[in-house]
């Protein structure tokens, strides 16, 4: 009975089991990049892919989502999301998204583009989609420069901002004024949702994730076009460290581009 005895001893002792639970980490839909991780340290664009992945997982829409990506830094986000995706010529995602959405209206079709990609070369497709009130979601990453090509001025570059095409700082008298996408887009009747978020603080990240959720929800509810603008750090082309980039967002970008929801309707007559 010695074996049994040992069993009894075990019964009386307090047995503690330590379980290890995962609290946070890489979302399932965020996969290692096809072409290798090419983002500069501190770049916020991959956080956009992360937020989209988290939202799609929460909505359970990962396998009905189709991403339409632009030429630019965001092109490489395409490789990071485990969803069907289309890479388009520069500035054209709203056109492609329209083509895809018209074929598959029950899918979530969203674009990811830069500020220049949407507001400069992409103005034609943007206005087309807005006028036609396409039921797609447009996500614009606003880092106030053209990133991939080395930091030229973008429509959202700030007054006095030094870029490779505004070497003495952006002179509004000669180059015009920063374009405010979220406010402008909110004025279109066919738009159900328009918001601007940022990733410079944990609170803002979570708030922006909520905006993306709302935007996708508008599309799932077939209400109208939804738009989310996200202020993104671009340390490399701002010539700032990642941490200083956060400060620049706080002190310069957000005052020019206030965060929040500019339109949020559940029905469009």
């Amino acid at each position: 009975m010695s074996q049994g005895g040992r069993l009894e001893d075990a019964m009386n002792e307090e047995v503690k089991v330590v379980t290890k639970q995962r609290v946070a980490g890489r979302p399932k839909l965020l996969v290692p990049q096809i072409a290798g991780f090419i983002y500069c340290p501190g770049c916020h664009e991959p956080l956009a892919a992360r937020a989209i992945a988290e939202v799609l997982e929460k909505l359970g829409m990962g396998d009905r989502a189709i991403g339409v990506f632009d030429i630019g830094c965001n092109s490489f986000l395409l490789g990071m999301l485990d969803i069907d995706a289309v890479l388009t010529p520069h500035g054209r995602p709203p056109d492609m998204a329209t083509g895809v959405k018209r074929v598959y209206p029950d899918n979530i079709v969203f674009t990811v583009q830069g500020d220049g990609g949407l507001l400069s070369i992409g103005a034609d497709p943007l206005l087309g989609a807005l006028t036609r009130a396409e039921k797609i979601t447009i996500i614009m990453l606003n880092n106030a420069v053209y990133g991939t090509t080395g930091g030229q001025m973008a429509p959202t570059s700030l007054e006095g901002q030094v870029t490779t095409t505004t070497p003495n700082g952006r002179d509004l008298a000669r180059t015009g004024f920063p374009t405010h996408a979220a406010e402008m887009i909110a004025t279109f009747r066919g738009v159900a949702y328009s918001a601007r978020g940022a990733f410079n603080t944990p609170k803002n990240y979570m708030r922006t994730r909520k905006y993306i959720t709302s935007a996708f929800q508008k599309q799932m509810d077939n209400v109208g076009l939804s738009f989310v603008e996200i202020i993104c750090a671009c340390p490399e082309n701002w010539r700032l460290s990642p941490i200083d980039s956060l400060k620049w967002i706080e002190e310069k970008m957000i005052p020019e581009f206030p965060l929040g929801e500019f339109k949020n309707v559940d029905r469009i007559e």
Binding site: I66, V68, V86, T88, P89, R92, D95, M96, A97, T98, G99, V100, K101, R102, V103, Y104, P125
Partner: peptide, 9 residues
Amino acid sequence: NLVYGAAAA
């Protein structure tokens, strides 16, 4: 580009 989208689908 709309054609590109539909063709891609």
